[in-house]
């Protein structure tokens, strides 16, 4: 029951998700071990406007910072904002979905009402406005994104919970005398996990792109380097006009590659579901 083709480098994962996973792990390693992997301190200044050469693989920017070092260090912010926002969004969404789907009735109505209201809030414009006035740090942005994006996860978790809730083993658990909390965490959650995981993974992708966009618009924190800010500076400091491709192509490719890796993992996870719970 594998996903794509019969190639299974890792146990249980198809080729597509394996590639995605490998790429993802590579990026995470780079983010964690930035100090060790990068040739120079990204803030160190060298001769500015250098094209790529042996000393500086991707050249230097207008401030004289080595771009390759910048690229490596920027992975930290971009990836952690992506992961952070996704984590918050998924956690809130799962909680809301579980409570809503399990208890139904008043709790369900109330929570779904809140979900509808949050859905109406346009997240990117809100972030832009907040960013313009408050100049938040990347972590604040991650928090804001997380607090607005949990809605689709909540909906999906809720409908799966409603399904699982009616299954005989949940009734058995109630009959045996288990508490509601136990049933939600121990009986229902493991059966909705397969639905939550791909949502989490895809949320990382969305968060990353949003962070990049915001930074690109110049609303990010200029004192912290991210792939988005790199592209933003490339734009505002004349990189595009002058054709300095080594200013904007590398971060762009990194964003695409990371999102791609995440999406490959996410889509494969969504498809290869052998949850053994077919509704007969």
């Amino acid at each position: 029951m594998d996903g794509r083709g019969s190639c299974q480098p890792f146990k249980g994962l198809g080729l597509q998700s394996s590639l995605g996973a490998v790429l993802f792990i590579l990026f995470v390693i780079v983010a964690i071990f930035s100090e060790g992997l990068s040739p120079y301190d990204p803030w160190a200044r060298f001769q500015p406007y250098q094209p790529p050469d042996i000393q500086h693989i991707l050249g230097t920017n207008d401030m004289g910072n080595d771009i390759f070092s910048e690229l490596i260090f920027s992975s930290r912010i971009s990836i952690s904002v992506g992961l952070g926002a996704a984590l918050i969004a998924t956690a809130i969404g799962t909680l809301v979905g579980l409570i809503s789907g399990y208890f139904k009735g008043l709790a369900d109505e109330a929570l779904m009402g809140v979900t509808d209201i949050v859905l109406m809030i346009p997240s990117i414009p809100l972030i832009i406005i907040l960013a313009a006035f408050l100049r938040p740090s990347p972590w604040d942005i991650a928090l804001i994104m997380g607090s607005l994006w949990w809605t689709s996860t909540a909906r999906v978790v809720r409908s799966r919970t409603l399904q699982v809730r009616e299954m005989k083993f949940v009734e058995s658990a109630r009959s045996l005398g288990f508490s509601d909390i136990h049933i939600i965490t121990s009986e229902i959650f493991p059966n909705i996990f397969q639905v939550v995981l791909p949502k989490f993974v895809l949320a990382i992708a969305s968060a990353m792109i949003s962070e990049a966009s915001i930074s690109f618009l110049g609303l990010g924190d200029p004192s912290m380097k991210s792939w988005g800010t790199m592209i933003s500076f490339a734009f505002s400091r004349g990189g595009f006009i002058n054709g300095y491709w080594w200013w904007y192509m590398p971060p762009g490719i990194c964003i695409i590659a990371f999102v791609f890796s995440v999406v490959m993992m996410g889509f494969s996870l969504e498809e290869d579901r052998d949850d053994g719970m077919r509704l007969e």
Binding site: M167, K168, F169, S172, P190, N191, M277
Partner: peptide
Amino acid sequence: EGSLNPRK
């Protein structure tokens, strides 16, 4: 098969 949690 229904009485027992399929994931446990």
